[in-house]
């Protein structure tokens, strides 16, 4: 029983948050902060797979998030909202419970496929050159969407709120919040399972000595494919959730600035630590809200903090350690397979 304390705790926390949100104990502002926190956790942990575990320098994570956001939004809008493309919604609101997760999944897949743009060149290229490719990929995604008038171009795309309205018409509880929390949990769980397996450790082997990895039987191309596609796929999931939290997306919200934010979280948390990245995402979200009063100075102060961090604790909050490495007693409370 003790072994399951953490698991039960996590689910209890999710249920508690949902209940608090339902009865308006948590007001809309806190709920939206919590949801963005979840999205940030997915983004930071998934980028950490590439930038931390694999030791690459991907700086275009926002681009993959964008693909996921647009594709899943397009799916739900076509299915559940009046739209300019098909006119009337295809499906009745009661189908949202299947349609929404499915749309998120489709968005993630699309983002994973987009990840190929980076994964394939990574077979031959490393380091700085690959960084540029990720950067270019980010710009390409943004400017491609800017040029697609049918989904709003630079003006953005909306209609996603119909999905939550549909779900609420059946049962009035905070659905998007619940999906976001479950999505966050699922992503971290998936990543955790991957990096702790012998298969997944091949990714770290690539970062530490790629030649040795290749010669000691690690299929490096396959590992890179998995790492990049998993990472960008989860970024796509984060994008899908983000789009349905806001009910509106525009390409500018996924530009280099977004990618930079995600990188900040990864390096704040520590490369190669999932709990570090998650912790950093929480901290970062809170910091962003707490520093709101600084107004334009916010984005002077945050980089400054990170510069100081790099000077005095460059390994980030957690280095490459996990929470359980720092507090071994924690192990008693969860069994992780």
């Amino acid at each position: 029983m003790q072994k399951h304390t953490v698991t039960i705790g996590v689910f209890a926390l999710i249920a508690l948050i949902a209940v608090l949100a339902q009865f308006n104990v948590l007001d809309a502002y806190y709920v939206s902060v919590l949801m963005f926190m979840g999205v940030n956790i997915i983004l930071a942990t998934s980028l950490n797979l590439v930038n931390g575990y694999m030791g690459e320098f991907s700086c275009g994570h926002g681009g993959f998030m964008c693909v996921g956001a647009y594709v899943s939004s397009l799916c739900t809008v076509l299915m559940f909202s009046k739209n300019a493309i098909l006119g009337a919604p295809l499906l009745p609101p009661s189908m949202t419970f299947i349609g929404f997760p499915l749309a998120l999944l489709v968005g993630s897949f699309a983002a994973a496929i987009a990840g190929l743009v980076v994964a394939i060149p990574s077979f031959k290229t490393r380091g700085d050159y690959l960084a540029i490719i990720t950067l270019a990929a980010n710009y390409i995604v943004i400017s491609a969407i800017n040029n697609m008038e049918i989904i709003g171009g630079p003006r953005g795309f909306m209609g996603m709120s119909a999905t939550e309205v549909g779900m609420k018409s059946v049962l009035d509880i905070p659905w998007v919040l619940i999906f976001t929390m479950l999505g966050t949990l699922g992503s971290v769980w998936l990543l955790r399972r991957f990096v702790s397996s012998t298969l997944g450790k091949g990714v770290s082997a690539i970062s530490q000595d790629e030649i040795a990895a290749e010669i000691m039987s690690v299929d490096t191309n396959r590992m890179k494919l998995i790492a990049f596609m998993l990472s960008s796929g989860l970024a796509g999931l984060a994008g899908g959730l983000y789009a349905h939290i806001l009910g509106y997306v525009n390409p500018q919200s996924f530009d280099i600035m977004r990618s930079t934010e995600i990188m900040v979280m990864v390096y704040l948390g520590g490369m190669g630590s999932l709990s570090g990245a998650a912790l950093a995402a929480v901290l970062f979200t809170v910091l962003m809200e707490a520093l709101r009063f600084l107004d334009v100075w916010k984005w002077v102060v945050i980089p400054l903090l990170l510069i100081l961090l790099m000077q005095f604790r460059p390994e980030g909050l957690m280095g490459n350690k996990e929470l359980a490495d720092l507090f071994p007693k924690l192990r008693k409370f969860y069994s992780f397979k």
Binding site: F57, Y267, V296, V300, P303, M310
Partner: peptide, 29 residues
């Protein structure tokens, strides 16, 4: 200072990225 400490090249890159943000937003502010 980072070089003196023998820090990982990556930390310098991140620092550069952040310095750029500070210049941009500092100017704006």
């Amino acid at each position: 200072p980072l070089r003196r400490k023998g820090a990982n090249r990556l930390y310098v890159v991140i620092t550069a990225l952040m310095a750029g943000l500070m210049l941009e937003n500092g100017n704006l502010a």
